[in-house]
Amino acid sequence: MPLTIAICDDNENQIKEMRRLLAEWSADKPFALDIDEYISAESFLFSYPDKPCDLILLDIEMKRLNGMELARKLRSDGNMLPIIFITGYSDYMSDGYEVEALHYLLKPVDNSKLFAVLDRYIKRHTPENDIMLNCDDGSMHISPEMIVYCEAVGKKTHVHLQDKTLVCNMGISSMKNILPEEFIFCHRSYIVNLRFMRSIGKANITIDSGDNLPLSRRLYKDVNEKFIQFYTKG
């Protein structure tokens, strides 16, 4: 499932600005982002049971039910939905601690501060060794240990597991950046997991399944050294 963030603010221009910032933040992220918009606390409470979210960006000063009252209502119901308060007033900061808010940002929102808070949230809520992939079938967490090799196909990357292949909406260079060090380029279009390498030849690599992957001549020395190091370390 994609990450879903709700924006709750009675100012439509503020909602538009927060949507813009979220789009900027998520542009280079390896997962899909869904954004739900609410013009009042009441509309959020009405929709939330059937339309849950992972996190809410919540204004405090709203007509009728304000954001702090909404937060207290959630907490009294035992709901620990992560909340980032976004407001023009600093007077409520101590109340924010009371309802265990994730953070408190003042308007106008500094994009670097918002991005830092969101990045910390993602880091805490993604299993330490997992990566999140935005695939044709939806976003998913996956352990890198399940990946045998990755293959560039156009602007996408085919991630080959032992039992299936995932088609991911990111380039192979971006894929390499989120993989651990045991994943190496053996060709400009292929990344192989050293754990699944059986042998290495001058022009190809044989993996445990018996399949062969191409090996670039210019990468042969580096791949061979890392292959030997991986299986002789310790």
Rank of each mutant, 00 (worst) to 15 (best):
P2E: 07
I5N: 00
I5A: 01
C8I: 09
C8G: 09
D9Y: 06
A23D: 14
A32E: 12
A32D: 14
E37P: 00
S43W: 02
Y48F: 14
Y48V: 01
D50P: 00
D50Q: 11
K51Y: 05
P52I: 06
I56G: 00
I60C: 03
I60G: 01
E61W: 01
M62Q: 01
R64W: 11
N66D: 15
N66E: 13
E69L: 06
K73A: 12
R75W: 06
M80S: 08
G88Q: 04
D95W: 07
Y97A: 07
L102G: 03
L105S: 02
L106M: 10
L106C: 07
K107F: 07
S112M: 13
L118T: 05
L118W: 04
R120F: 09
P127T: 02
E128I: 13
M132W: 04
D137M: 10
G138L: 11
H141G: 03
H141F: 14
I142G: 03
Y149D: 07
E151S: 07
A152H: 05
V153L: 09
G154V: 06
K155A: 12
D163I: 04
N169F: 09
N169D: 13
S174N: 14
S174I: 00
K176A: 14
E181R: 07
S189T: 10
I191E: 13
R195P: 00
F196K: 02
R198I: 08
S199W: 10
I200G: 01
N204W: 12
I205F: 01
S209F: 07
S209P: 09
R218L: 13
R218I: 13
L219I: 04
K221I: 08
V223D: 03
N224R: 15
N224S: 14
E225C: 11
Q229R: 08
F230D: 04
